[in-house]
């Protein structure tokens, strides 16, 4: 199985490859990708240099152009496609069918991956992407169990890629409007879930209060582990009581499921976190490189815990084992 790793900066890209990534995914510094945060992402020149660095070391670069274009501004997304192809991207990760159509028509030889943002969760929709746009790989949404993944793989010729570590979306990916409702900015169209411009933290004697677009979404006691300031991980008072009504602040960690995913026929494992720093990239990529190597040669794994990097200092197997609420 290939190891697909995130990079939000050129330095992170180099760290990922040096730590053992088979491929790195990244995006341009604009709203064409789903991690459109301040100071993050790549200029055209940085992407060209990153691709050269990767290819020199036998690694590949996948360019995420995985937001949904605004009807009046498709040129921005089409230019991103053209520039990524011209830079030598090994694959494009795309969610919007209009943009997939553009890739298939304009760049018929370009390898196309279906983004997790497309929420392609059954064999029929995957077959549509394969037959219509010649998609070569689909990144499966994080709502499927290992058994369901195996069933999908049995019914498709398309390669599959699944997340094994990092932040989780509990909503239908690419369809969530919680952040849009609170801030007016869309994760799916502008690439900003909980945009920093709308996030506020306030330190008080009771702890740290986080707000998004004026909505209080959590208050952490002084020593209590925290999560991202997203509404889906907000803690609210409701008629049923106080607590996390959508999802606890936890990160996915499927280290223990690698053999099962391999048996299911998964082609590639993906680490979430283009917004994270080099230290995260280096440690998490190295962790999964070791885990994959020991899986291949059958040796005993000596793998350190990734807990310090997890949201809320806790991990879950998520939908892979559907025990969550």
């Amino acid at each position: 199985m290939e190891l697909i790793c995130p990079a939000g900066t050129p330095a992170a890209l180099r760290s990922a490859i040096e730590a053992g990534a088979d491929a790195v995914y990244c995006g341009f510094n604009d709203e064409t990708n789903a991690r459109n945060f301040p100071g993050l992402n790549f200029s055209r020149d940085e992407l060209r240099k990153g691709i050269a660095f990767a290819h020199d070391r036998g690694a590949r670069i996948l360019v995420a152009i995985n937001t949904f274009p605004r009807a009046s501004a498709t040129a921005l997304w089409q230019r991103a496609v053209d520039d990524a192809v011209e830079a030598g991207a090994d694959a494009l990760i795309v969610a919007d069918i209009g943009l997939m159509d553009y890739v298939a028509r304009r760049h018929p030889n370009q390898r196309l991956h279906v983004s997790v943002q497309a929420a392609a969760a059954n064999p029929d929709v995957i077959a549509f992407y394969v037959e219509t746009f010649r998609a070569r790989r689909v990144v499966l949404p994080r709502v499927l169990s290992v058994v369901e993944i195996a069933e999908i793989i049995r019914e498709t010729t398309c390669e599959t890629e699944v997340f094994v570590f990092g932040g989780l979306c509990v909503m239908a990916e690419g369809r969530c409007s919680l952040s849009s409702y609170a801030t007016g900015k869309s994760p799916n169209m502008q690439g900003v879930c909980s945009p920093a411009s709308h996030v506020a933290y306030e330190e008080t004697a009771q702890g740290t209060t986080s707000r998004l677009g004026g909505f209080t979404i959590n208050r952490f006691a002084p020593q209590e582990a925290a999560g991202y300031p997203t509404l889906c991980k907000g803690r609210f008072s409701t008629a049923l009581g106080d607590g996390y009504i959508f999802e606890d602040p936890v990160s996915l960690d499927a280290t223990t499921l690698l053999r099962g995913l391999q048996s299911a026929g998964v082609a590639a494992l993906k680490i979430e976190g283009r917004q994270r720093g080099r230290a995260y990239i280096e440690s998490v990529v190295r962790h999964f490189r070791r885990a994959l190597d020991t899986l291949e040669d059958g040796s005993e794994a000596d793998i350190v815990s990734l807990k310090p990097f997890t949201e809320g200092q806790a991990s879950t197997l998520g939908a892979y084992r559907k025990t969550w609420r």
Partner: peptide, 23 residues
């Protein structure tokens, strides 16, 4: 170290303009 990890473990406090901090 990873800034998000420090935030999750409450070793890092941030206030004010979050865009500036992230950048």
């Amino acid at each position: 170290v990873d800034g998000d990890a420090l935030m999750f473990s409450r070793q890092l406090g941030i206030e004010g303009n979050m865009e500036a901090v992230l950048a």
